[in-house]
Design a protein around this nucleic acid. Structure first.
Ligand SMILES: [Mn+2]
Ligand SMILES: [Mn+2]
Ligand SMILES: [Zn+2]
Ligand SMILES: [Zn+2]
Lengths: 142, 142
DNA sequence: ATATAAATTATAATTATTCTAAACTGTTGA
DNA sequence: TCAACAGTTTAGAATAATTATAATTTATAT
């Protein structure tokens, strides 16, 4: 559990003013035991459940993008029409459960030896992401 | 170069009526030397350039989804607000050039030994996709 | 040919996201 | 301390991709 003053320092040190909206969003995002994978909608719902005054949706978007640009969040590519964000900013890969639309971190030992041996000439690699889509193993009942 | 009658057979054999719209779209998609990576907008533009009568955008969407469901196209996950489709339906991976927003197939020898060693209990793996985001190697001129 | 189901189409609706511009707030330094 | 200024929040409008609707047209089987 991080203290409020730690969030204030973190925000200030990256040139972001510690507003009450940003501090609340920090609390929701970063005062957790486990990685949080979320859509903007997940986050907005989570905030409104915990708060009496509301934070505008525009501010949620603004803040998430600011945090992403500062490197406090990652954005994850899913074949869907909405963006997912991730509080785990280390290099790691994901399962995506197509039944529940849930992102799940891969442990280190899931993917063996991922090694990119070639690249496009004149380009640098910005990221390498593996997405493993999974779904229920049940037979279709036709 | 596939013949029109081959497209007709292919469509019929998958329970799709060979309409003139679908045949034109087949021609645009599948009469190519190389893999075609496209957005709906790319495809619609490509069609209208080659055609005097126009095909409705709704039909382009309908047809692309029908072809995807029949396994003639793959949909690729990019961190963007639009979907990409791929005429290469083999298992393969991609570079994504963030300068040009272009998808590029990885050759077999780009990724070594991709091996998924664990899975979520009770789920089956539907797909494994690697996306390598690249961009220009130039220094930022500040 | 006719009946029927499938497909096409224009257009409206939906949804995620971004933009706008006015009001508000945090910070700085006189 | 407090005015000035830049940074932030906000409601609401705009945008853009996609999906839904429902009327018309077309393909196919009998
Ligand atoms: Mn989609
Ligand atoms: Mn969208
Ligand atoms: Zn993650
Ligand atoms: Zn491809």
């Amino acid at each position: 559990m991080l203290k409020n003053s730690e969030f204030i320092d973190k925000l200030r040190s990256s040139g972001l003013r510690p507003t009450k909206q940003r501090l609340k969003i920090c609390e929701v995002l970063f005062n957790r035991d486990k990685t949080f994978h979320f859509t903007i909608n997940d986050l907005a719902k989570n905030i409104s459940e915990q708060l009496n005054e509301k934070i505008s949706l525009a501010t949620v978007y603004n803040t998430v993008h600011a945090f992403k640009n500062k490197g406090y969040l990652k954005e994850i590519s899913i074949n869907s029409d909405k963006s997912y964000f991730d509080t785990n900013i280390t290099n790691h890969h994901h399962f995506f459960d197509e039944d529940s639309n849930e992102l799940i971190d891969c442990d280190e030992d899931v993917i063996e030896n991922l090694n990119i041996k070639k690249n496009i000439t004149g380009k640098k690699i910005n990221s390498v992401e593996v997405l493993i889509k999974v779904a229920s193993d049940n037979q279709n009942q036709n």
